[in-house]
Computed example of a mutant assay.
Amino acid sequence: MTPYDDIAPAAQGTPTTAPLIDSFGRTVTYLRLSVTDRCDLRCVYCMAEHMTFLPKAEVLSLEELDRIATAFVGLGTRKLRLTGGEPLVRKGMMDLIRSLSRHLASGALDELTLTTNGTRLAEFAPQLASAGIRRVNVSLDTLKPELFRTLTRGGQVAKVLDGIAAAKAAGLAVKINAVALKHDNAAELPELIRWAHGQGHDLTLIETMPMGEVEADRTDQYLSLADVRAELESFWTLTDLPFSTGGPARYVRVEETGGRLGLITPLSHNFCEACNRVRLTCTGTLHTCLGQEDATDLRAVLRAGATDAELAAVIRGGVSVKPKGHDFEIARRQPAVARHMSTTGG
């Protein structure tokens, strides 16, 4: 039994229609679903220090999140990533995950996963594994306690490391995500890669993205991963790999560590031509591009009493106008989009 066993059979996610294809011929098979805008950390590149969080009435209920996710599965979504904010701070989160796992059991969904800051993994890792989660992404930009406190405005790196260890013990594959910051962790990146690979974890580096008004100067902090790769290749051998997890990262193997290193390069190397992803905010706004202001209000459709067919039609219409690519340019002093990453979903 799941918490939402009264969901109508028509909304159980079995694909019955043509796949979601945008006007550029890209098939959308990957939904990143934000379940909350709230987080127990305040990372300097992600949030303003004094965030105003959404009132509960504006946030989709667990049932509404389930229904929209199920509609996407019915339209051919094969991968569903739960994000935030921090998804594990959402009350009832495990109920939602257990319910969505029915799509894994039916074969309609290939993967159900989540991105987390790791602070609550020690508590939830065994439950996640038992619900069908097989891997998680953990955001970790530094192993240094003082720098971690600075970057997260008060967080404890030991808590995240304990969470990563608990996830590994529960049988979850862990991928570490680190934002490359020119003046904070640039010198530490080789050490972070060695540590992750030594623990058996992949690590992905991400260029800082101009989203939302924050106190930090992203122009000053921007570090091209083309430059990072060149530096790493001065002492390591990097071999390009055809491997993909369905996201935007390009992977190399670090021959000296034996581990995989991912590179997400929205500014130095645009990856839009093969984009298969869309994002849904916790308020029910569908964004088909991380770096554009396009938006389709699915919450209004749901709360107006839409049928499953009407909901699917609106989703299809939103995806049909997916932009060709983002508009990120680090040289601009203003963000490409006004919304914060914590609002959009990672």
Results as ranks from 00 to 15, higher is better:
Ile7Ser: 12
Ile7Val: 15
Thr14Trp: 13
Thr16Met: 10
Ala18Asp: 15
Pro19Cys: 06
Pro19Ser: 09
Leu20Ile: 09
Ile21Phe: 08
Asp22Asn: 10
Val35Ser: 04
Thr36Gly: 08
Cys43His: 07
Cys46Ile: 13
Cys46Trp: 11
Glu64Leu: 07
Ala71Cys: 09
Ala71Met: 02
Phe72Trp: 00
Leu75Gln: 03
Leu75Ala: 03
Leu75Ile: 07
Thr77Glu: 11
Lys79Thr: 15
Lys79Met: 14
Lys79Ile: 15
Leu82Cys: 10
Pro87Gln: 04
Leu88Thr: 08
Val89Trp: 01
Arg90Tyr: 02
Met93Thr: 13
Met94His: 06
Asp95Asn: 06
Ile97Gly: 04
Leu100Lys: 01
Ser101Gln: 03
Leu104Glu: 08
Ser106Lys: 05
Ser106Phe: 05
Ser106Ile: 08
Ala108Arg: 02
Leu109Glu: 06
Leu109Pro: 03
Asp110Pro: 00
Thr115Met: 10
Asn117Ser: 12
Thr119Phe: 07
Ala122Leu: 11
Leu128Gly: 02
Leu128Tyr: 01
Ser130Gln: 13
Ala131Gly: 08
Ile133Arg: 03
Arg135Trp: 00
Val136Pro: 02
Ser139Trp: 04
Leu140Ile: 07
Glu146Trp: 12
Phe148Gln: 12
Arg149His: 13
Val160Tyr: 00
Ile164Trp: 02
Ala166Met: 05
Leu172Thr: 11
Ala173Ile: 14
Val174Tyr: 01
Asn177Asp: 08
Asn185Ile: 12
Asn185Pro: 03
Ala187Trp: 00
Leu192Ala: 15
Arg194Thr: 13
Gln199Ile: 13
Thr208Ile: 15
Met209Cys: 07
Pro210Leu: 11
Pro210His: 10
Gln221Ala: 10
Leu223His: 04
Leu223Arg: 06
Asp227Val: 13
Asp227Phe: 06
Leu232Ile: 03
Glu233Cys: 10
Ser234His: 09
Thr239Ala: 09
Thr239Met: 10
Asp240Pro: 09
Pro242Cys: 14
Ser244Asn: 02
Thr245His: 11
Gly247His: 01
Pro248Glu: 00
Ala249Lys: 03
Arg250Met: 11
Val254Cys: 07
Glu255Pro: 05
Glu256Trp: 02
Gly258Phe: 05
Gly259Lys: 09
Arg260Glu: 15
Leu263Pro: 05
Ile264Cys: 10
Leu267Cys: 14
Ser268His: 06
His269Cys: 12
Asn270Thr: 04
Ala274Val: 06
Cys275Gly: 08
Val278Ser: 07
Thr281Cys: 11
Thr283Ala: 13
Leu286Ile: 03
Leu286Arg: 01
Thr288Leu: 09
Cys289Ala: 06
Gln292Lys: 11
Thr296Trp: 06
Arg303Val: 05
Arg303Cys: 07
Asp308Trp: 05
Leu311Cys: 01
Ile315Val: 13
Ile315Phe: 09
Arg316Gln: 04
Gly317Arg: 04
Lys322Glu: 02
Pro323Cys: 14
Lys324Leu: 15
Lys324Ser: 14
His326Tyr: 09
Arg333Asn: 14
Ala336His: 02
Ala338Asp: 13
Arg339Gln: 06
Gly345Asn: 05
Gly345Ser: 05
